[in-house]
Amino acid sequence: MTKYEAQIVPLNDTKIGTSAHGTATFLEENDKLTITIEMFDTPANTEHWEHFHGFPDGKDAAISTIDQDTNLDGFVDLMETEAVSGTTMVAFDDAPENIDIPHDRYPVSDANGHFSYTQVVPLSTLQANFEKAFGSKDLQLDKRVIYIHGVPASLELPATVAGMVGDFDAHVTLPIAVGKIKRVD
């Protein structure tokens, strides 16, 4: 068994009015990857996209901070995270092995801003689809970061906040928390 963990810390908290935080664990055993994420103090009653991001070439990804706010609008948006964190790779939705990103099948926080997510994924299927998408079967979890996204549509965002993905606007894709995934021995 191989175990990975991430301590998830707030991002954009001074602008969104909550300090989302939590933990993620990833357990690889046999042909299964068990993903468990628990989040607190997220925007309430909101769907939260969650993914791991990284670089297809295996470069070590880092978490974004306010330093990535290149347009100085006070928000670190999805596009601004790419320089240090890479691209969106695997969704933590109802079927992570499918690597299907833009949809509305992600966890929704309760009235207190809490949600818990657990999914057991067929590792060989995930690896095969990961190889099709990114050229390698190796997930390299210890070179990835996890992002939690999503704020209510009622939150006023400046036009400079980028993040339109398909039919989903920046309210859906705005990062609210991030954590570096580390191997635990």
Rank of each mutant, 00 (worst) to 15 (best):
K3A: 02
E5L: 00
V9P: 09
V9E: 06
P10Y: 04
N12A: 00
D13V: 09
S19M: 03
F26H: 07
L27S: 15
K32W: 11
L33P: 04
I37D: 12
F40H: 14
A44H: 12
A44D: 13
A44W: 09
H48S: 02
W49V: 03
H51L: 08
F55W: 09
G58E: 09
T65H: 10
D67Q: 12
N71Q: 13
D77N: 03
M79N: 11
T81Y: 08
E82W: 06
G86N: 07
A91Q: 12
D94E: 15
N98H: 08
D100P: 10
D100R: 04
Y106R: 06
V108R: 13
D110A: 03
A111R: 12
F115A: 11
V120G: 08
Q127A: 08
N129M: 11
G135M: 02
G135A: 01
S136G: 10
D138A: 14
K143Q: 12
R144M: 03
I146L: 06
Y147P: 00
G150A: 10
A153Y: 14
L155S: 08
V161E: 01
A162D: 05
V165I: 04
G166F: 14
H171F: 02
T173N: 07
L174V: 03
L174Q: 01
P175Q: 01
I176Q: 06
K180F: 08
I181R: 13
R183E: 00
